[in-house]
Amino acid sequence: MSSKSTPPTPRPGRASLEERRAQQRAAARIYRAKQEADGRYQTIFWMTMRQAVAVREWLRRGGDVSVLRSNEEKGEHHG
């Protein structure tokens, strides 16, 4: 028998915080790539609560959302 002890084998279980964050980042990259492959692009911006209420009301009343579509979706090609 050897007098050296072997290090304990880590038990399978919860991933470390950094491992979970790395998994989440990888999943987000894959999701974004799939969305972009479908021609979708996400932008994020902040607005005031008052602006958000006004936008929701405008949409509820049938506001023209064609301005939110890309030129490609509208069939317009420049270049």
Rank of each mutant, 00 (worst) to 15 (best):
R21W: 04
H78P: 03
L59V: 11
A15H: 06
T6A: 13
P8L: 04
E76S: 05
A27N: 03
A22C: 03
S66P: 02
A33T: 11
A22S: 10
G75Q: 01
Q24Y: 11
E72M: 06
E19I: 03
T48R: 11
Q51K: 14
L17Y: 08
Q51D: 15
Y41E: 11
R40I: 13
W58N: 04
R40P: 00
E18T: 14
G62D: 06
R40L: 11
K74R: 15
A37Q: 14
R50H: 04
G63N: 08
R29M: 09
M1D: 06
R50A: 07
E57L: 06
Q23V: 03
P7C: 02
Y41T: 13
E76K: 13
E19H: 02
P8Q: 04
V67P: 03
P7V: 10
E57Q: 12
D64C: 01
V65M: 09
A27P: 00
W58E: 03
Q35N: 03
A33C: 05
V55A: 09
P8V: 02
S66F: 05
V67A: 13
T6G: 05
S3Q: 09
R11M: 02
P7M: 08
H77P: 02
R32Y: 01
G75M: 04
P8H: 07
A22H: 10
A33W: 05
H78R: 14
R21N: 12
